[in-house]
Write a protein that binds this DNA or RNA. Sequence first.
DNA 1: TATGAATGAGGCTTCATTCAT
DNA 2: TATGAATGAAGCCTCATTCAT
Lengths: 193, 193, 193, 193
Amino acid sequence: MTAPEPTRERILAAAEELFAEKGFDATPTSRIAARAEVPKGLVHYYFARKADLLEALVERLPRERIDRAAVVVPGDVEASLCRLVAVLDALLDSSAVLSHLLWREADTHPAVRDALHQRFDALVAEIRAVLAESGATGDVDSAAMLLASAVSYRHSVFRHAAVESAARTDMTPELRFLAAGLTSSAPARPGPA
Amino acid sequence: MTAPEPTRERILAAAEELFAEKGFDATPTSRIAARAEVPKGLVHYYFARKADLLEALVERLPRERIDRAAVVVPGDVEASLCRLVAVLDALLDSSAVLSHLLWREADTHPAVRDALHQRFDALVAEIRAVLAESGATGDVDSAAMLLASAVSYRHSVFRHAAVESAARTDMTPELRFLAAGLTSSAPARPGPA
Amino acid sequence: MTAPEPTRERILAAAEELFAEKGFDATPTSRIAARAEVPKGLVHYYFARKADLLEALVERLPRERIDRAAVVVPGDVEASLCRLVAVLDALLDSSAVLSHLLWREADTHPAVRDALHQRFDALVAEIRAVLAESGATGDVDSAAMLLASAVSYRHSVFRHAAVESAARTDMTPELRFLAAGLTSSAPARPGPA
Amino acid sequence: MTAPEPTRERILAAAEELFAEKGFDATPTSRIAARAEVPKGLVHYYFARKADLLEALVERLPRERIDRAAVVVPGDVEASLCRLVAVLDALLDSSAVLSHLLWREADTHPAVRDALHQRFDALVAEIRAVLAESGATGDVDSAAMLLASAVSYRHSVFRHAAVESAARTDMTPELRFLAAGLTSSAPARPGPA
DNA sequence: TATGAATGAGGCTTCATTCAT
DNA sequence: TATGAATGAAGCCTCATTCAT
């Protein structure tokens, strides 16, 4: 009744850190073993191939659910967006290493790539739901798509704290702009022409 | 009148392709030499360290200038945005491998990271200029930032032709949404509160 | 009851031979592996850097102790010196390859250089002790220093059996000369003037 | 009528320095060219093989002649020895890099080894001559041999200024000891028994 | 006489992976 | 379940040497 697989978990945690720090290719399994403080052979005992570590990490990805009740301010689209972005920022930061990792390895590992796309689509859906519940009218789909892009971009590129850039500032102006487009009597998104 | 450095250029071109295909770490210099059809030693004759190839590629990045006169439709923000995105798509696709490469290696190579941020800022500025010249009013800055994010995101992530995703479709709805927010008598972006 | 680390030892022995034959820089690790009859990777498994081989060899240096009781002939300095030199010759020949190696690599490897100086000082001390116990009087220090130089020189330079030179002959005349200076009522070495 | 071969000489001088600093094997010809400030191809134009540089350096070795008239103090063996060692120290220091080099490469390059032995024999002869002219009696050969060893040893091993060791002090006690053995009515060196 | 691009062998080292225990 | 020695392929890089100009 002890923790079920402490060693296997320690190995995964070490791999997650190192992959995020240096990338998959630049991380030797020996270093993973060292950081996990397990003998080298044990890594390959649990994960026969190095790529298996990556897939296990992807499967372990938390399915981040947003508590929409705590985010939506009915009737106030802008306030809802602000609270949503705050929650998303916190969520994405909490699994920052994993997200980071996904971006880097998406090209060469199909499993990772698929997970990444899936996450983006889930994010768009989440934003759309918040907009709808907060009473947004107009082209909710486009706004959701734009916001999802901006949020994802921030978290994928501007993860280097040292860098100052136009995009590193807070997003309230953009949110206000989006909200403005969704509050007036704007037309809904037209179907694909 | 022939190209001044055919071999050096061939090596760079081969490196660009392979780095984009497989990533920096996963590309052996021997394969670069093979694709460039030069002996292995010549790669290191021109680029002492493998990382020098990366830096040379970044320096070679075309400073993409947009011919604004051919893009801006005065008085029609939406049309201007459509033409702008078309031009941007063409531009980014022409240097797709390089862009792709930047995204992957930004973390581990500072020179690459800086180039990436610089490119994003230039993109935002370009969009802003097009909006201004096409007669947009309102929070031009926020709109430029959102559009730059969306365009960048498309080109960095959705480069896998095989993948179908919500974001892989054309952007006209989003552009229409943005244009709508910039056409009415919307207020300009407020300064930092 | 077999040797505890046969492979590691075999690698060290092979390295010792080859370094002495050709020098450190001119000996590829692949040849060390070949002579030790182990796969190439095993050399680097035990000794991550090539220089580690050198340091391990230095640490393995036998601390040659002389059995003074078997050397000293009380009251007969010349006889004592003759027997001492015979013992030293045997000792140095037994670790000839290592000594040889030290001389060559002392410049570039501090650890080796220090070991070399330490050995010389130990040799001087040993000679001094033998002289004292055999009843030498006079400037024992100077004689010890001269003899240590001559012995060391012989073993470091005149190790090429093929070479005939004035110094390759036996040392009995020199020993007789030294003994003569230490037998009469000669004054002890003066302190630094 | 300009200096006959300034470039060739510059190359040799650069090679001498670098060989002494790092050793023959560890010195690339490209670095020699760099230090000599000549293009890389020129080194191999003058010296087809790298080893030719070494042989040219050995041939360039100055045949150090000692001005015995300025050294010998007739009737005072100890004073003569002191002045001799002072002159030898100066001489050997002036060609220190070359001497240093000889010691390191003697094993693998026969031409160097022969030059080294030749130098030692010349040194012994020189000392013997000084002793004879200063009126030494007794076993002049052994004393010359011992002193030559000690001087050579000092210059070959104790070239590392940073190292403090018993042998790094001045040699006057040893010289006094030797002189004492050559001043009394000591018997001449006997022939090989 | 001078040059520097070109060449390829080979050096050191890393590392995923296997396997006997 | 756990271990670490063993293996060898392959990577990056160095460098003497050649050669066309």
